[in-house]
Amino acid sequence: MIFARLVARRLGGVVILLAVLSVLTYGLLSLAPGGPEQALLGEHASTPETRAAIRELYHLDESFPLRYWRWLSAALSGDFGNSVSFRQPVLSVIGERLPVTTTLAGFSMLLTIAVGIPAGLAAGMRRGSTLDRGLTLGTLVSLAFPPFGIALILLYTFGVWLQWLPLYGSDQVSNYVLPAIALAFGQAAVLFRQTRAAALNVGGQDYLTFARARGLSRRRIWGSYSLRNAAMPVLTVAGVLAATSLTGAVFVEQAFSLPGLGSLLVQAVNEKDLPLVQALVLLGGAVVIIVNLLVDLAYLVIDPRVRHGVSA
């Protein structure tokens, strides 16, 4: 009942958010100079009749509300139209690129969690130690480098100089190692800092002082008392990073020539492929909303206080 109530509360907000996002995207792209007919014609010479036929085919001569309503009515039935640049259904184009982005996001999140959370807990448990200072300094350095810069360094070091890993491609697991590291480099630092802050906050609570006074071991104190209470803010940041991995890997995909959704979005925007851009933006918004919803549901499982607050 509590889960159903929370989901019901969120569904209304989801519909409103996606509607606003679609209107803004459609409107901004319509106001941009040029049009889809330029992407179709390219450098070829055209006659006024040809351009008029293209505009009629894609309903470009209609008013913005009418064009948007026509697109929305079709999208609600699962038809997002045909891509202007690829001459294929939008969902088919996205379906071909989606596995690349999801694979990259999955590998990067595994690295982010495997590095960020243990390192953050270790630093929080040993505040002021050499380990804590070294890890904190390392995260500051990693946050100073953008993912694109890290990608170039990894490409030259492990692809050109050492030749340990391939430079590009998406057909083997080894093709995702360097891109995943580049994407997780800064994300692990963010998760580390949040985990360390949560561990420091929990470490000063009275119940941990009493647990230490009882003579409990550090492993039992952190395993039985601290982790669950420190998990809430860490889970929030992890959810944001997971959504970012799926929707924000544009620079990494460009650097490693990965045919994912990020590079597809750049191409669609450059060519004013309105149906494709609209579908990609809505997909990104849906991913963020779904991840936030899953995080909220995880709150209910982890912390009973949240369940009581929702039920109240």
Rank of each mutant, 00 (worst) to 15 (best):
L6F: 13
A8L: 15
A8E: 05
G13A: 12
V15R: 06
I16R: 03
A19I: 12
A19H: 08
A19K: 08
S22E: 12
V23P: 00
L31R: 12
G35N: 08
L40Y: 14
L40I: 15
L41C: 03
L41G: 12
S46G: 05
T47Q: 04
E49K: 08
T50D: 08
A52Y: 04
A53F: 06
R55E: 15
R55A: 12
E56Y: 10
L57H: 15
D61A: 09
S63W: 08
F64M: 12
R67K: 09
W69L: 13
S73P: 00
A74H: 10
L76M: 14
L76P: 08
D79F: 02
G81I: 11
G81A: 06
S85R: 10
F86P: 00
R87L: 12
S92R: 09
V93S: 08
E96Q: 14
R97S: 15
V100S: 00
V100M: 05
V100A: 03
L110Y: 14
I113C: 09
G116S: 07
A122E: 02
A123M: 09
M125T: 09
T136I: 01
F145W: 11
L154D: 03
L155T: 11
F158S: 09
V160A: 15
L165P: 07
Y168C: 00
G169T: 03
I181R: 03
I181W: 03
A184W: 06
Q187H: 15
A188R: 09
A188D: 10
N201A: 14
G204Q: 14
D206R: 14
R212V: 06
L216E: 10
S217D: 09
R218T: 11
R219G: 09
A230V: 05
M232R: 07
P233A: 04
P233S: 07
V237E: 05
L241F: 13
A243P: 14
L246M: 10
T247A: 09
V252C: 13
A255R: 07
S257W: 06
L258N: 02
P259S: 01
A268V: 01
V277Y: 05
L280C: 02
L282D: 11
G284K: 01
G284V: 02
V287A: 03
V288F: 12
V288R: 13
I290F: 06
I302P: 01
R307P: 01
G309L: 10
S311L: 07
